[in-house]
Amino acid sequence: ITGDVSAANKDAIRKQMDAAASKGDVETYRKLKAKLKGIR
């Protein structure tokens, strides 16, 4: 179950990262990237 949750989280975070990148929001992008590392 835990694996599914983190996989879903990663997917959601990647989508947020894409949105931040397209807006040029480097700050948010970095925060999300750090979150991704924390999940692993």
Rank of each mutant, 00 (worst) to 15 (best):
I1H: 11
I1P: 09
I1M: 10
T2I: 10
T2Q: 09
T2V: 11
G3N: 10
G3W: 06
G3V: 12
G3M: 11
D4I: 10
D4N: 10
D4L: 12
D4G: 10
D4M: 12
D4V: 12
D4K: 10
V5R: 12
V5S: 11
V5M: 13
V5G: 10
V5Y: 10
S6D: 10
S6Q: 11
S6V: 12
S6W: 07
S6K: 09
S6M: 12
S6G: 09
A7E: 09
A7N: 08
A7K: 10
A8N: 10
A8M: 13
A8S: 10
A8T: 12
A8Q: 09
A8G: 08
N9C: 15
N9Y: 15
N9V: 14
N9M: 15
N9R: 14
N9P: 05
N9F: 15
K10R: 14
K10Q: 12
K10Y: 15
K10W: 15
D11E: 11
D11I: 11
D11Y: 04
D11G: 06
D11M: 14
D11P: 04
A12C: 07
A12N: 07
A12Q: 09
A12L: 12
I13W: 05
I13C: 00
I13G: 01
I13A: 02
I13N: 02
I13F: 03
I13E: 01
R14I: 09
R14A: 04
R14P: 02
K15R: 11
K15T: 05
K15S: 05
K15M: 08
K15A: 12
K15Y: 05
Q16R: 06
M17N: 02
M17A: 02
M17R: 01
M17G: 01
M17Y: 02
D18I: 15
D18V: 14
A19K: 07
A19V: 12
A19R: 06
A19W: 09
A20W: 02
A20Q: 02
A20E: 02
A20D: 01
A20P: 00
A20S: 02
A21R: 14
S22H: 07
S22K: 14
K23H: 05
K23V: 11
K23G: 04
K23W: 03
G24Y: 03
G24K: 03
G24R: 03
G24Q: 04
D25M: 02
D25A: 01
D25G: 00
D25R: 00
V26K: 08
V26C: 15
V26I: 13
V26R: 07
V26G: 03
V26L: 14
V26S: 06
E27D: 08
E27T: 05
E27F: 03
E27I: 07
E27W: 04
T28C: 15
T28W: 07
T28V: 05
T28A: 10
T28H: 04
T28P: 00
T28I: 03
Y29T: 01
Y29P: 00
R30D: 03
R30A: 05
R30P: 00
R30S: 02
R30M: 11
K31P: 00
K31C: 15
K31D: 01
K31V: 02
K31H: 04
K31Y: 06
K31A: 06
L32D: 00
L32N: 00
L32E: 00
L32T: 00
L32F: 03
K33R: 11
K33E: 08
K33P: 00
K33V: 07
K33L: 15
K33H: 06
A34S: 05
A34Q: 07
A34L: 09
A34R: 13
K35H: 04
K35E: 04
K35L: 15
K35V: 13
K35Q: 10
K35D: 00
L36P: 00
L36T: 01
L36C: 08
L36K: 02
L36S: 00
L36F: 03
K37A: 14
K37V: 08
K37Q: 11
K37G: 05
K37H: 11
K37D: 14
K37W: 03
K37P: 03
G38E: 13
G38V: 07
G38Q: 14
G38S: 12
I39Q: 06
I39A: 07
I39F: 13
R40V: 14
R40W: 13
